[in-house]
Design a protein around this nucleic acid. Structure first.
Lengths: 213, 213
DNA sequence: CGCTTTCGCTACGGGTCGTAGCGTAACTGT
DNA sequence: ACAGTTACGCTACGACCCGTAGCGAAAGCG
């Protein structure tokens, strides 16, 4: 979320926090109207009502700016206790899908990931500000399921971390792939089917025909 | 794979098939060296040894060109019979990961998906030439597992198609997300863990500690 | 009230875009 | 063999955006 200022100096004129918010909002608006490739920093600066040079003082370039602008979208993800692991998974899947339905998330997220293929610093920035922000939901839901007795406890913290990572990539990856690559809708039915496979496995899900409507 | 020529005319000078191959190869080379954003059509034309105008005669723009260039990468995916559903899944996951390890696939695929957020035609092109090309592997592996008795047959073709789509998005999405978003390695251990969750579900995989090494 | 940093503004060279125009090359049908 | 048709290579063009530099003014701190 932080622009890239290493340390806020104690002296001199402070940076306008309002400008930061305006710039990030303008970036999202530009993503909606123009998409990734046509988005220009000149345009963002105009929309935000700041000078173009101010933008370059805070962000190294388009990639970093968009990552920060998109990362904020995932702040609205929550995980209310819906009573069961299955219900929790279905809920978060639909929430996540709603975010990915917004054009600023689609083009911004994928554009940033594309650029990260050749930029180690950007890749780490994505991992820190987007991936970690979402992964907390898995940790939370998992702990809750363990309290309910729906999932076993894992003693070794390394094994536990690996499980969390796996579940996260499975769920988030499936939703992203379905919505953005396969271009098919993530609706309630699909969320139910996904959850069944996740909890029971492929064969188990086929026996229980709840996903077939 | 086809450029965009609606119908090959019977008269006049035919288009050079060699030029097509050279252009697509040059596109991949440019993706490796420059990435998505710095790739220019002028550069691709120079690498391929053709005039820039030739490029614009065959493809509408960068997006379409890259989709075609990247789609060819997935032709090398195969599904040899490894004896069990689990082994088949693990094998294809590692194959898929090997492709996604190549920089031309990383930046090209994600860049195209990013642009597809605001381009219906491009989205359909991705679906047709990349998604469908991969989905055949799921259909094949599934049929094989049904013959082995590892998976139940589904009579309703609509239900069956939905299952295939779900499994495809789960596996492909998980691999893509792990490799490109989470930026963590897709190795044999992870492939085993993924397969276990897919076949047995989360709880079932935790009981069988094969993925913990 | 000096010191420091940010901000808005203007201007600049450099690069890419996508297209137009022309002469030439390649292939087809009569 | 010849006319018809299409693809190709080449050059040139205006338009746009990039990222930076330089300036005076504004906003905090001691």
């Amino acid at each position: 979320m932080q622009s890239r200022t290493p340390a806020p100096r104690a002296t001199g004129r402070p940076r306008s926090a309002a400008a930061d918010a305006a710039i990030l909002a303008a970036t999202r608006a530009a993503l909606v109207e123009l998409g990734w490739s046509r988005l220009t920093l000149s345009d963002v600066a105009f929309r935000a009502g700041v000078a173009k040079t101010t933008l370059y003082r805070r962000w190294a370039g388009k990639n970093e700016l968009v990552v920060d602008a998109v990362a904020e979208l995932f702040d609205e993800l929550e995980l209310p206790d819906r009573g069961s692991l299955a219900a929790d998974v279905e809920g978060v899947v639909l929430q996540f899908a709603a975010i990915l339905d917004r054009p600023e998330a689609r083009s911004g997220l994928m554009g940033a990931v594309a650029e990260a293929a050749r930029d180690d610093v950007l890749r780490e920035r994505i991992r820190a500000s987007i991936v970690e922000r979402q992964k907390r939901l898995v940790v939370e839901g998992r702990a809750r399921a363990q309290e309910r007795g729906e999932l076993p406890y894992e003693e070794d913290p390394r094994t536990a971390a690996r499980t969390v990572d796996l579940i996260f990539d499975l769920v988030a990856g499936a939703v992203v792939h379905r919505a953005l690559v396969s271009s098919e809708p993530v609706d309630a039915d699909w969320a139910v089917s996904l959850t069944q496979v996740l909890l029971l496995g492929i064969a188990g899900a086929a026996q229980n025909p709840a996903g077939s409507v």
